[in-house]
Design a protein around this nucleic acid. Structure first.
Lengths: 227, 227
DNA sequence: CATAACCTACCGACCGATCGGGAAGTCGGC
DNA sequence: GCCGACTTCCCGATCGGTCGGTAGGTTATG
C-alpha cells in the first residue's frame, strides 16, 4: 500500500520492471521541469521506488540524462546514414532526412526536447561526447545540402547556415506537436519536406522584396551588454 | 578586498550600479547554466554583492527571470506591430519581420535563449502571462503569412504551421550565432529573409521528390511510451 | 536625520548520494 | 533434495552540503 507504487499501478495498469519505470519517469520529468528542476526523490516517486532502489539501477542522476540523449542521437545518426546510403539524389535525400527527423521528433517528443535543451546540464566530459555525436548528425545534413548545391539542384548562399536553419526548423516540431491535431504525422512530415525543398530548390522566385527604410529600436534594457 | 567585487572590477574595468550588474549576471548565468542550475549565491558573486544585498534590489529569483523575458517579448511585439503598421505588402512585411527577429536574436543572444528555454521554470501564474505575450507575437506572424496567402503572393499548405516553422528557424540563430563569424549581422538577417521568402512564395518548383520506399527504424529504446 | 545601500549571520527545507542490512531468488556441490 | 554461497532487488535512515530567502544591524549619501 505504498503511495508511489500504487500511483504507478493506477496509471499503467500493471507492474513493469523498475528499471524501465525509472527511465520513463526521468524522461517525463526532465521534459516537464528540466533536469536541474527535477529531484531524484521525484523520479523515484514517479517510478514507484525509493531513492535507494533508484540508485540500485543507476549510478548518478546524470546517467539518466545521458541515456535519454544517446537514445535520441544514435538512432537519428543511424537513420541519416541509412538514408544517404540508400537514396541517391540530393533532393530525395534531403526530403527523406526531413521526413524522418520530423517524424522522429514528433514520436519522441519528450526525449528529443530533453536532448535539445539539457546539454548544458551535462558535465564537461560527457557533454563533449554528446556534442560530437550531434555534430556528426548535422554534418550529414550539411553535406547533403552541399551536394545539392554542387550538382545544381539546390541554390543556397551558405550550405552550413542553411543546414542549421533547416534542422532547427524541423526540430521545433517536438515543441508544439500534439497527436490530437488535424494532420496525420505522415502528412505533417511531408509538409515540412515540401517547405524545405521549396526553400533550397534552384528554381527560386524573383528579386527579394524588403522594406529598407524602416528603422527599428535597439536591443532592450541594455541586456546582453557583454555578448 | 572582497573576492566577488574585485572580480567584477577586473572584468568590467569600472564599478557600475549594483542593480544593473545583478541583471547582467543573471542573464549570463541563466543562459549558461539554466535558471534552476543557477544559485542566488552565484548570481550575487558574479555581480559582486552578497546575497542579502541582492535581495535589496530583487524580491525573488523568479523576478530576475521574468524581467529578462519581458525585456525580450515586449520589444519584439512592439517592433512587429510597427512593421505591420508601416509596411504594406505581405512579402515586405514578412521580410522585415524576419530581418528584425534574426537581428534581435543575434544581438540579444543570452536573453533570447533564456526566454526561449526557461518558460517551464516560471510559476504557473506568471507563466501564463509570458505565454500570452509570446502568443501575441506569434499571432502577428501568422496573420502576415495568412494575408500573403489570401492575396496570392504566398502559397503554403497551413499558415499556422508555416508561421511556427519560420519562427523556430529564425529563433535558432540565437543558439549558434557568434559575432566573430564571416557574415555581418545585416547580411545574415537578409539571408534568412531570403530563405523564408523562397519558402512561402507562390512561384514554387515542380513536384516534390521523395524516397517513398525507404523503411526506417522505430523510436528508440521505448522512450516516450506515454506521449 | 532619513533613506538607500549594503553587511554578518543564519533559517528550515531540500539536494544528490550512501549506509548497512534483509528478503527472495539462483546456483553448483554433494 | 538440500545446503551454503552468491546475486539481485530493495528497504529505512541518514549523510554533508546547498538551496532560496531573511532578520537585524551598520555605513554611506543626500
Amino acid at each position: 500500500m505504498r503511495a508511489g507504487r500504487s500511483e504507478t499501478l493506477r496509471r499503467t495498469g500493471r507492474v513493469r520492471p523498475a528499471d524501465g519505470r525509472i527511465r520513463d519517469a526521468s524522461v517525463r520529468l526532465f521534459a516537464q521541469k528540466g533536469f536541474q528542476g527535477t529531484g531524484i526523490r521525484e523520479i523515484a516517486a514517479e517510478a514507484g521506488v525509493t531513492t535507494a532502489a533508484l540508485y540500485h539501477y543507476v549510478d548518478t542522476k546524470e546517467e539518466l540524462l545521458l541515456d535519454i540523449m544517446y537514445g535520441v542521437l544514435d538512432p537519428l545518426a543511424a537513420a541519416a546514414r541509412r538514408i544517404v546510403n540508400e537514396v541517391d539524389r540530393p533532393e530525395a535525400r534531403l526530403s527523406a532526412l526531413v521526413e524522418h527527423h520530423v517524424w522522429f521528433h514528433a514520436t519522441n517528443q519528450l526525449a528529443t526536447v530533453v536532448t535539445d535543451t539539457e546539454i548544458r546540464s551535462l558535465g564537461s566530459e560527457v557533454r563533449a561526447d554528446v556534442i560530437a555525436r550531434r555534430d556528426v548528425y548535422e554534418a550529414i545534413w550539411r553535406s547533403v545540402v552541399a551536394d545539392g548545391v554542387a550538382d545544381g539542384t539546390f541554390r543556397v548562399d551558405d550550405p552550413r547556415i542553411t543546414a542549421i536553419a533547416i534542422l532547427q526548423m524541423c526540430t521545433g516540431v517536438a515543441h508544439w506537436y500534439r497527436p490530437t491535431g488535424p494532420l496525420t504525422l505522415t502528412r505533417l512530415s511531408r509538409r515540412y519536406a515540401d517547405l524545405v525543398l521549396s526553400m533550397v530548390r534552384a528554381a527560386r522566385g524573383g528579386v527579394p522584396v524588403r522594406a529598407d527604410t524602416l528603422e527599428l529600436p535597439s536591443p532592450a534594457r541594455g541586456l546582453d551588454a557583454h555578448v
